[in-house]
Nucleic acid binder design. Sequence first.
DNA 1: ACCCACATGTAATGGGTTACATGATTTA
DNA 2: TAAATCATGTAACCCATTACATGTGGGT
Lengths: 170, 170
Amino acid sequence: MTKAADRKSLTELEGAALAIIAREGPLTPYAVKEAFRNSPSEFWSGSAGAVYPLINRLEKRKLISAKADKGDGRARREFSITAAGRTAMKEWLVDAERAAGMGFDPLRTRLFFSELITPAERKAFIAAALARMEDGAPAPAVDLPHVKPLHDLWSRLRVKALKAFAEKMK
Amino acid sequence: MTKAADRKSLTELEGAALAIIAREGPLTPYAVKEAFRNSPSEFWSGSAGAVYPLINRLEKRKLISAKADKGDGRARREFSITAAGRTAMKEWLVDAERAAGMGFDPLRTRLFFSELITPAERKAFIAAALARMEDGAPAPAVDLPHVKPLHDLWSRLRVKALKAFAEKMK
DNA sequence: ACCCACATGTAATGGGTTACATGATTTA
DNA sequence: TAAATCATGTAACCCATTACATGTGGGT
């Protein structure tokens, strides 16, 4: 019998944390936190209050496990993904249903309501947003395989979408 | 002197709720809840436990106000946006800084980690995601001005992005 | 020695989700 | 009139954010 906690599917945060640990090998909680902090999306805040408890939850569910402390002074625990963790992670990763969902885009949300401002205000807003989106992406700090290309791809498409929308509003 | 609560800028949920009320004229809390529930993005769950307290908060902050109950039996309160609400809403709506943020995309998140599965698994995942994304959008239930076109535009671009990524992985 | 970045947490708070409760209105 | 849906809420729970506390290690 599997316990209820084991059956519950992973949240996005849990899945991403597992994936990071799976990819980067043994990691300290701090390293996981930094990985989130350096993500190009503001969605992943990587706050201590989120990540440390998260790591503890994952350990309690035996999806990750810590190598014995090296005992060299400070308490550092390096976590690796377990077999069960790998299974759960893969299940999360190939969830096409969730992947297909639209997610959340603060730009799209605002464009939905763009008729509530005057054409002049709209024009100014679009120009300001474009400026921030186009000028050099702040160079995602993580240098993991797909991070930069994917970030750039998504950025370009959002710019294109905004321009298309602006064009149609003219 | 403005009170702290007034100075605090709106969350996405608060901003969107205000915008809905601004656009749709006097609305009951239930109608606002349904507007969120019918949104094409799973991000806006429109649960009762989120919306009713939200409406109360907005009223307490005097960003919306209820017309006197019509007294016809059941307690129905119809809320309209106030002048202060309109100001706060516009400030939220033209916030280009936040609009430019990448937001959250469950597809993008998974593609970041797509090297953790085998090429065959990846191919299957991409096909499954594409199928769900391309087959007729479940027709957004709300028929507000930009909802459908924007939803379609974003959908098409996400499909294009996924195809581009799949191509590059070959 | 001193400062700053590294590293690991916890407490208070806020707010969203799920599930439940309750009554009114509509429809079969 | 019984069932379904409309409509409004509330309570328990979960979890992320902010802010704080604490200690280590390396550089100057």
